[in-house]
Amino acid sequence: MEENKPSMMTYIMEEQEVLSNILKNYPDNCPVIKGNDWLVLATGSSINAAYSAKYYIENILDVYLRIEEPFKFHYYEKLKEETDNVIGISQSGESTSTIDALKAIEKMKPELTIYGLTSKRESELAQVVDEVIDIENGIERVGYVTKGFSATVFKLMLTALKTAKARGLISDQEEEKELTTFAKAIDKISEIIEKTENFFEKWSNELMKAQRFTSLCTGALIGTAMEMQTKFSETIRLPSQGMDIEVFMHGPYFEVNSNHQQFYIDSN
């Protein structure tokens, strides 16, 4: 093995520092986004991150946020007349389907402001958008992005917070309260990693017997469940799915058997 070759765990251990730095750079590192009808285009972990941030954005800004896969949108969906900005997300900045969809939208409605959320400011994505938003997570030299997922969620939420403040929807005190809440959550990341490792050690024998995994959640946690589906499929290479428990109870629960492991993700 190459000496000092990074692993997925290398980048997981960097998450707390990366998110702390993003928070320190606020508000200068976030744009103010205009309009009340947003279209987000993303795939993979990027679309999971968008779903993780969706309800926070809609709640604090009172906007409508539509999330689409770029290939499907490009060839099958219609651009709503009400859409007043588009955000394309690609951590690498090289997602062909996202870039192609953004180019098509620019031709359809040139007056739209198109944002590109990426960790590579010199990427192809950055060349086709009106404004680049740097995720600020650096480059992950493994195939399974982790700190990039968390950083994308956080950058979207901070952008919504700054926009809400600029629009006069929240006060200085309310903005500060949100920032304090974020800081407290970031401070717990190392503790969460330790708890997770302990959990795996405790249940490793049972987990390694499983032939299928499902994560179940409600509401705003759907992005987390979807990211579990993405990461488990990428890494352990076993059938995995993440979904809302209400959806699960309308059919998929029939597949449950003794070789099936389930995670129930709780919220506050």
Rank of each mutant, 00 (worst) to 15 (best):
residue 164 A to P: 05
residue 140 E to P: 01
residue 247 V to K: 09
residue 159 T to R: 04
residue 60 I to T: 12
residue 125 L to I: 04
residue 200 F to K: 14
residue 68 E to W: 02
residue 63 V to P: 02
residue 139 I to S: 12
residue 152 T to I: 12
residue 214 T to F: 05
residue 196 T to H: 11
residue 257 N to H: 06
residue 65 L to A: 05
residue 89 I to L: 02
residue 10 T to W: 04
residue 221 L to P: 00
residue 124 E to M: 07
residue 2 E to A: 04
residue 135 I to N: 08
residue 124 E to C: 00
residue 131 E to L: 09
residue 112 L to P: 07
residue 226 M to V: 00
residue 2 E to L: 08
residue 90 S to T: 10
residue 250 H to Y: 10
residue 194 E to I: 13
residue 28 D to R: 14
residue 235 T to V: 15
residue 205 N to I: 12
residue 175 E to M: 13
residue 233 S to V: 01
residue 41 L to K: 12
residue 85 N to R: 02
residue 30 C to I: 09
residue 190 S to Q: 13
residue 91 Q to K: 06
residue 80 K to I: 00
residue 229 Q to N: 06
residue 151 A to G: 09
residue 263 F to G: 00
residue 254 F to M: 03
residue 188 K to R: 14
residue 41 L to S: 10
residue 190 S to D: 14
residue 160 A to H: 11
residue 135 I to D: 11
residue 201 E to H: 15
residue 62 D to M: 03
residue 45 S to V: 10
residue 207 L to P: 09
residue 188 K to G: 03
residue 16 Q to M: 06
residue 198 N to T: 12
residue 258 S to T: 03
residue 172 D to S: 13
residue 141 R to A: 15
residue 46 S to A: 15
residue 234 E to F: 05
residue 243 M to A: 00
residue 184 K to P: 00
residue 31 P to A: 12
residue 92 S to W: 01
residue 140 E to A: 02
residue 60 I to E: 13
residue 257 N to K: 03
residue 119 S to N: 15
residue 164 A to Q: 05
residue 251 G to M: 04
residue 196 T to F: 07
residue 68 E to Y: 09
residue 158 L to D: 14
residue 85 N to F: 04
residue 197 E to V: 14
residue 39 L to E: 10
residue 166 A to C: 05
residue 19 L to R: 10
residue 40 V to K: 02
residue 181 T to W: 11
residue 140 E to H: 01
residue 206 E to C: 01
residue 265 I to V: 07
residue 58 E to F: 09
residue 260 H to D: 02
residue 57 I to D: 11
residue 260 H to N: 02
residue 163 T to D: 07
residue 113 T to P: 00
residue 106 E to G: 07
residue 8 M to V: 14
residue 74 H to A: 10
residue 88 G to L: 11
residue 205 N to L: 14
residue 137 N to C: 15
residue 168 G to N: 06
residue 6 P to K: 00
residue 4 N to Y: 12
residue 112 L to F: 06
residue 67 I to Y: 08
residue 93 G to S: 04
residue 237 R to Q: 15
residue 170 I to P: 09
residue 89 I to W: 03
residue 148 G to H: 03
residue 158 L to S: 11
residue 36 N to K: 14
residue 194 E to V: 12
residue 103 K to W: 01
residue 98 T to F: 08
residue 197 E to N: 15
residue 188 K to H: 12
residue 104 A to D: 13
residue 255 E to Q: 08
residue 82 E to Y: 03
residue 35 G to T: 10
residue 62 D to C: 07
residue 150 S to C: 14
residue 55 Y to D: 14
residue 148 G to S: 15
residue 174 E to A: 10
residue 54 K to M: 14
residue 234 E to D: 12
residue 199 F to E: 13
residue 196 T to R: 11
residue 224 T to M: 10
residue 244 D to Q: 09
